[in-house]
């Protein structure tokens, strides 16, 4: 007989994981559409939404710790996330509809394994690390590593507990997305980028393109150009060209290539402009 477990703490969750044949859901926004029909009579569903330790956004030891159970709505509205991880707040703001954002969680967005997910590129651009719980204990893994492994990254009984984003001084970030519509749209392309500014110089760029077969693809070349020495207009053009090259290399021969190589130009322009605007504002204040 199929069962439902609703643990309220990590300890209770651990006990639930021990019973075997478990399926773990947080917001359930993908699972109930995609997987509910394959839910077998011997399976047990574990609902994570009551686990208190999966919530919370806090500054801890020079990093930003975000519970994997935080919803898209709460991330988009969190002053801490907006201040320290702007691209993540923007990505969360562009997921699905209001109703979806009220349920869908940061952990679920990554664990779902969709190459079109919006928050994994942002987490990658921010160099986030995930904390993963199972009966075998707790391990940590970079989001980059999880994305690289795709759906195999997490075992069925593994649960994402939290993400930690390092907070080097002066970091700014931005996110952009192209879908079929402004709202309630799955990304055809998304782009997250972060960099550090200190004094007049830019450094530590991380540029991540999503939806090119994986949820995030790091683009070191585009990152170098972003913080390079070209003047602003040339840098903007070169940044966009580098992104086009990334698209061409990632999906050669695909029917979607002609469209994506054009659309990435728009994302490149928008993300570049947002970063430089923020960068200018920063200089203005200091």
């Amino acid at each position: 007989m199929a069962g439902l477990m609703t643990p309220n703490s990590l300890d209770e969750l651990a006990a639930c994981l021990a019973i075997g044949n478990v399926r773990v859901v947080a917001g359930g926004t993908d699972w109930f559409v995609r997987d509910v029909e394959s839910f077998g009579e011997e399976d047990t569903l574990i609902d994570l939404s009551g686990v208190a330790e999966l919530r919370g956004v806090t500054l801890q030891g020079g990093g930003l710790r975000i519970g994997a159970g935080e919803t898209m709505t709460s991330l988009a509205g969190s002053p801490l996330v907006r201040t320290h991880a702007a691209c993540l707040a923007e990505a969360a703001e562009h997921v699905g509809s209001w109703q979806i954002r009220n349920r869908a969680t940061l952990g679920g967005n990554l664990a779902g394994g969709s190459p079109a997910a919006d928050t994994p590129p942002a987490l990658m651009a921010l160099d986030a690390t995930a904390e993963i719980l199972s009966l075998r204990g707790t391990r940590s893994c970079s989001v980059e590593g999880i994305v690289a492994q795709g759906r195999a990254a997490l075992a069925p009984d593994e649960v994402l507990v939290a993400f930690t984003i390092p907070l080097p001084e002066g970091r700014i970030s931005a996110f952009g997305k192209v879908g079929s519509r402004k709202e309630v749209s799955i990304a055809r392309l998304n782009l997250a980028a972060s960099l550090r500014r200190s004094g007049g110089s830019l450094s530590n760029a991380r540029v991540v393109v999503g939806t090119l077969g994986s949820a995030g693809r790091l683009c070191p070349g585009a990152g170098e150009i972003l913080i390079g020495s070209l003047d602003l207009e040339e840098r903007r053009r070169a940044f966009c060209s580098a992104l086009v090259a990334v698209v061409e290399a990632a999906i050669p021969g695909r029917s979607t290539l002609p469209y994506k190589r054009s659309a990435i130009l728009a994302l490149g322009e928008d993300v570049f402009d947002a970063l430089m605007r923020t960068s200018d504002e920063g200089r203005g204040r200091s």
Binding site: V33, R181, K182, E183, I186
Partner: peptide
């Protein structure tokens, strides 16, 4: 409706 896109309210 995930792949069939109607013109929605924000549009």
């Amino acid at each position: 409706f995930d792949k069939y896109h109607m013109f929605n309210a924000p549009e």
